[in-house]
Computed example of a mutant assay.
Amino acid sequence: MTDIKTLQQQISAEIDKLQFGTEPKELYEPISYIMSLGGKRMRPLLVLLGYLLKEENAAAVVRQALAVEVFHNFTLMHDDIMDEAPLRRGQPTVHEKWNSTVAILSGDTMLVKAYDLLLEINPKLLPEAIRLFNQTAVEVCEGQQIDMNFEAESQVSVDAYINMIRLKTAVLLGFSLEYGALMAGMAEPGRKQLYEVGVQMGVGFQLMDDLLDVYADQAKFGKQVGGDIISNKKTFLLIKALELATGKEKEALDSWLEKTDFDSTEKVEAVTAIYDQLGIRELTTNLMNSYFDKGFELLDRLDARPEGKELLAGFAAQLMKREK
C-alpha cells in the first residue's frame, strides 16, 4: 500500500532532477531558489492522489504532476511582488533577494516550463489537459485581480471573499485532483466530482491560512504572522469583524484600519484582541470545517478505488490538523 510519505519522497526526488536552465544565471537562479524552499508540495501530491483513485502506480505520473508545482511557484513569485511580501517559507522572497524585474521574468519562464512538463502526458489526453489547465490558470489570475480590487473597496461581502479564494487558491487544488484522475482514465462525471472535492478543501485550506496568519507560531508558520492585519488585507476574519463590531470595538477597529503611521506589533496585538472579543477565531474555524466536511462528503460518494479514497481522506484530515 502506497503512503503519503512515499509519494512526497517521489515528488521531492523528481523536483531535485528538474533542469530549468543555466544562463543567464540571473534568470534561472531565482527559479532554483524558490523551488528549493520546499513547502508542502500539496498540489503535485493531489495529482498523484487523484491518479490513485483509479490506478495503482503513481510513480508513472510523478514528472507530469510537477507541472502544477512549477505553475504554483510561478504564481507565488508574482504574488509576492504584488503583496510586497518579505518572506516566503521563512526565507526572503525572490524580489527581496534579487529584485522585482528579475522575479517577473523568472516567473514568466516558470510558466513556460510548466507547459513543458504538461506536454509529457499521454498525447490523447493532452488537449483536455491543456484546456483544463488554461481555464484554471485564468481563474487563478482572476482571483488575484479580485483580491487586489478588494484593497480599494471599503466593503467586501463574505460571499465575494469566498468566491475570490475559490478562484485564487481552490481551483488549482481541484484541477490537481482532476488532472491526476484524467491521466488515470477516470470518466468525466467522476473527475468533475473529484474537482469539486478539491475546490471545497481548497476553500477550507485558505480559510485555515487566514486563521494561521493571525494565530500561528511564527517559528512554524514560515510567513510573517500578522501580515494580513498590518496590510489591512480583507480576509474572512477582517470582513466578519467589520460586520459584527459595534460601539468601542468598531471605533477601535476603524481607527487601526485608518492609521498610516503605527507600530506593527501594537496593531497586530490590538486587532487580534478585537477578533478575540468578537469570537472571530471560532467563526472562521467553523466555516473552514464546513468546507472540509463537504469535501469529505463528496469524496465518500465518489466511485473510486477504496485505497485511493482512504489515502486522500487521510491526507485531508492531516491537513486540517496543521500545527498552529
Rank of each mutant, 00 (worst) to 15 (best):
Met1Phe: 10
Gln10Glu: 15
Ser12Lys: 12
Ile15Trp: 01
Leu18Asn: 13
Phe20Gly: 00
Gly21Leu: 00
Lys25Phe: 08
Ser32Glu: 11
Gly38Ile: 10
Arg43Tyr: 03
Leu45Ser: 00
Val47Ser: 08
Tyr51Leu: 13
Leu52Gly: 12
Asn57Gly: 13
Ala60Ile: 05
Arg63Trp: 04
Ala65Gly: 09
Val68Gln: 00
His72Gln: 07
Thr75Asp: 00
Thr75Ala: 03
Leu76Asn: 01
Ile81His: 05
Met82Asp: 09
Pro86Met: 13
Arg88Cys: 13
Gln91Trp: 08
Gln91Pro: 02
Val94Ser: 00
Val94Glu: 02
His95Leu: 07
His95Cys: 05
Glu96Pro: 11
Trp98Ile: 00
Thr101Asn: 12
Val102Asn: 09
Ile104Met: 12
Asp108Met: 11
Thr109Gln: 05
Met110Ser: 03
Leu111Thr: 01
Glu120His: 06
Asn122Leu: 03
Asn122Pro: 02
Asn134Ala: 14
Ala137Tyr: 06
Val138His: 14
Val138Thr: 15
Val140Asn: 05
Cys141Trp: 09
Ile146Asn: 08
Met148Ala: 12
Ala152Thr: 12
Ser157Lys: 08
Asp159Ala: 14
Ala160Gly: 09
Val171Asn: 10
Leu177Tyr: 03
Gly185Val: 06
Leu194Gly: 06
Tyr195Val: 06
Tyr195His: 08
Glu196Arg: 07
Val197Tyr: 01
Phe205Gln: 01
Gln218Gly: 10
Gln218Glu: 15
Ala219Gln: 15
Lys220Trp: 09
Lys223Thr: 04
Lys223Trp: 04
Gly227Leu: 11
Phe236Tyr: 11
Ile239Cys: 11
Ile239Lys: 10
Gly247Val: 00
Lys248Ala: 14
Glu249Leu: 10
Ala252Cys: 12
Ser255Trp: 05
Leu257Cys: 10
Thr260Gln: 14
Asp261Ala: 14
Ser264Asp: 15
Thr265Pro: 06
Glu266His: 09
Val268Glu: 09
Glu269Leu: 07
Thr272Ser: 15
Gln277Ile: 09
Leu278Ala: 05
Arg281Val: 08
Thr284Cys: 07
Thr284Tyr: 01
Asn286Cys: 10
Asn286Ser: 14
Ser290Leu: 11
Asp293Lys: 13
Phe296His: 08
Glu297Asp: 13
Leu302Pro: 03
Ala304Met: 04
Glu310Met: 09
Ala313Trp: 04
Gly314Leu: 09
Gln318Ile: 14
Met320Arg: 15
Met320Thr: 11
Glu323Pro: 03
Lys324Pro: 11
